Simulated scan of single mutants.
Amino acid sequence: MSNPSNTYPTVTIDVVLDRQTAKEVLRGVLHSILFHRLFGTVVPQTFEVLDVTMPGISDADMERLIDEKVNAFWKGIESGTNRRGQIVLTFSEKRPKKSWFQIYEEEVPWEQWVVNAELRQLKTERDPQAFNATLSNSLTHALRVILTHTSSLRGRTAVPPITKVDGISPFPLKMAVRMGGVEIG
């Protein structure tokens, strides 16, 4: 769960995707993480993905960001030979930093989420129900990881003091898509 080179927690979520539900699954997982990590005024919503109810946020900017990254992930899967990739979500705080002649703010990460996603294809006509059950279990496990981390002592103490709330998040966040270790989109 943690990354030894960093002092902040890194939470890894592994999901298995199929062509029909890949975008839906990724949107649901990203929305669920943001639902538990945005500390501004959040308008909640829910998503039904493979019979799993997932929490989400109703915010045009966040939804646009999620759609942009999910679409970049999908284009990477479609255009390359990779059947797996990552969407990395990093939360940071702004801290003052002094240099010789000025004081400026730097972004210092306090938590990172890595969603490892793998596209699998059905092998037979009979597989869909068993495969959907596997996907559903993968989603349920992802939600359990999110809830366990955010409610744990380590997950709660990772959050820096909130000094002001401008909009939906008091902290800068970055979302990156990686295929084969290379950032895309």
Rank of each mutant, 00 (worst) to 15 (best):
Q129K: 11
V43T: 12
G80R: 08
E48L: 12
E68P: 00
V43W: 05
V88I: 14
E68R: 11
S92G: 09
E118S: 12
T140L: 09
E125Q: 15
F47Y: 14
V88M: 06
T46Q: 10
S92K: 11
E68K: 12
T53P: 04
W100R: 12
F39Y: 15
K94Y: 07
I66N: 06
I66H: 05
N132A: 14
K75V: 06
E106A: 13
G76P: 01
K98T: 11
L50D: 00
E118A: 11
V52A: 04
A130L: 11
D61S: 15
I66A: 05
S58Q: 15
H36A: 09
R83H: 12
P55V: 04
S138H: 02
S136M: 03
K97Q: 14
L122A: 15
R120D: 06
P96T: 10
H36T: 07
T53F: 03
P109I: 01
I87W: 03
S99M: 05
F47Q: 13
T81S: 15
V43C: 03
P55C: 07
N71H: 08
S136I: 00
R95L: 14
E125I: 14
R126S: 12
T46V: 07
E125A: 15
E105A: 09
R84D: 12
P55T: 06
T81G: 12
P109Y: 04
K123I: 10
T90D: 03
T124K: 11
G80N: 08
S99A: 08
K123W: 13
T134F: 07
D67T: 13
V114T: 09
D67I: 02
V108P: 05
Q121R: 13
N116E: 08
E111T: 10
K98G: 06
A117H: 04
T90Q: 07
S138Q: 02
H141G: 04
P128A: 04
E111S: 13
F91T: 02
V49T: 06
E63D: 13
F47C: 03
V88Y: 02
L89K: 03
K97H: 14
K97E: 14
H141R: 07
F47P: 00
D67R: 15
A133R: 13
I77M: 13
K97W: 08
G76A: 04
L135I: 01
K75L: 09
E48C: 05
N137K: 10
I57Q: 00
V115D: 02
T41H: 07
V49Q: 00
N116S: 07
K98Y: 09
G80K: 06
I103W: 12
A130F: 10
P128L: 02
K94F: 07
N132H: 14
A60N: 07
E106S: 11
D61M: 11
W74N: 06
L119P: 03
